[in-house]
Amino acid sequence: MMSRLGIWLMQRSAVLPLRWVRAIGWLLGHLLYLLIGSRRHVVETNLRLCFPAMAVRERRALARRTFVAFGQSWMDRGWLWHAPPAVVARRLNLVGAVEELEGDAPTILFGPHFYGLDAAATAIAIRVPRRYTSIYTQQADPAVDEWIKAGRLRFGDCRVFSRATGIKEIVASLRAGDVFYLLPDMDFGAADSVFVPFFGVSAATLPSVPRFARLGRAKIITVLPRLTPQGYTVELLPAWKDFPGADATEDTALMNRRLEGYIDRMPEQYYWVHKRFKTRPEGEPSVY
Score class of each variant (00 low, 15 high):
L49D: 00
C50H: 06
C50P: 00
F51Y: 15
A53W: 08
V56S: 10
R57Q: 14
R57P: 00
E58K: 15
E58S: 12
R64P: 03
R65E: 12
A69T: 00
A69G: 00
G71Q: 03
Q72H: 10
S73K: 10
D76V: 05
D76G: 02
G78H: 01
P84M: 05
P84C: 07
A86T: 11
V88K: 09
R90N: 13
R91K: 15
L92T: 08
L92Y: 09
V95R: 15
A97L: 04
V98K: 11
E100Y: 09
E102S: 15
G103H: 14
I108L: 15
I108S: 06
I108E: 02
I108M: 13
L109C: 10
G111C: 15
G111V: 05
P112N: 12
P112E: 09
F114T: 00
F114P: 05
L117I: 14
A120Q: 11
T122Q: 10
A125I: 02
V128C: 08
P129C: 12
T133C: 07
S134V: 02
Y136N: 07
T137Q: 15
Q138I: 09
Q138C: 06
Q139N: 11
Q139M: 13
P142E: 07
V144Q: 09
D145A: 08
W147A: 13
W147R: 04
